[in-house]
Amino acid sequence: MKRNVGGFDRTWRLVGGAILVAVGLASFAGLLSVGTTVAAILIVAGAVFFATGVVQKCTINRLLGIDTYRKDAETDAESMDETPAKRAS
């Protein structure tokens, strides 16, 4: 599967996912009272958001035809890796 998560979308997945996991864990620790079921849902949802931000691939984005990944950066990086360095004579 191609990368389809990037830019602002990726940033919010990483930040939002971490926040959801933190709120869920805080609830399990007794620091917040949102309920056990809600806390578990927050942890799972946060982990999924964070993971999709890390790997930059989202099945739901693919099904909906959404692609926020910037292809220019990948193309530039690949061309730099394949081009051998020229040495001065």
Rank of each mutant, 00 (worst) to 15 (best):
L32N: 12
E78F: 15
P84G: 08
V38K: 12
D67W: 05
A22Y: 02
F50Q: 05
G6C: 03
M1Y: 05
A47M: 08
D76M: 11
D67T: 10
P84L: 12
A73I: 14
V48G: 08
G46H: 07
A45W: 15
N4S: 12
R62N: 07
R62E: 08
K2Q: 12
L63A: 12
T37H: 13
V55F: 04
S79K: 10
A47C: 12
I19D: 07
K71C: 07
T68L: 02
A51F: 11
G35Q: 14
V23A: 13
V48A: 14
V48C: 14
A85V: 15
D72I: 04
G17Q: 10
G16Y: 07
A47S: 15
G35L: 13
L31R: 15
V5E: 05
F49W: 15
G30R: 08
N4I: 02
M1D: 06
L20V: 01
A26E: 05
F28W: 15
T83L: 14
A29T: 09
R13A: 09
S27F: 02
Q56Y: 02
G24Y: 07
L42M: 11
I19L: 08
E78N: 14
P84T: 08
A77Q: 08
S79I: 13
V44K: 09
G30C: 11
C58L: 04
E74N: 02
C58F: 04
V55P: 02
T59M: 05
K86P: 12
T59R: 14
D76S: 10
L14I: 00
A73K: 06
E82F: 14
A29Y: 11
D67K: 01
N4W: 04
S89L: 05
L31K: 15
A29I: 15
D67H: 06
A22N: 00
R70M: 06
V15D: 00
I60A: 15
F8S: 07
R62S: 13
A45K: 07
A47R: 07
I60N: 10
E74T: 06
D81S: 13
S89A: 14
E78W: 11
C58E: 00
V44S: 14
G53M: 03
I19V: 14
F50V: 00
T75M: 07
V38H: 13
A88Q: 09
T75R: 07
N61W: 05
F49C: 06
G24K: 04
T83H: 14
Y69N: 01
V54I: 01
V44N: 13
A22E: 03
D81K: 15
D76F: 13
L64F: 09
V5D: 09
R70A: 11
I43D: 07
L25F: 10
A85D: 08
T68Y: 11
V48R: 11
R3V: 07
L31W: 15
R13F: 00
L25V: 13
N61F: 12
I43Q: 04
A73W: 02
V54L: 03
V55A: 00
R87N: 07
W12D: 01
N4Y: 03
D67A: 01
T68H: 03
P84C: 02
L20T: 04
M80E: 09
K86G: 07
I41T: 09
V5K: 08
I66K: 03
A45Q: 14
K86R: 13
V34I: 15
A22T: 08
E74H: 10
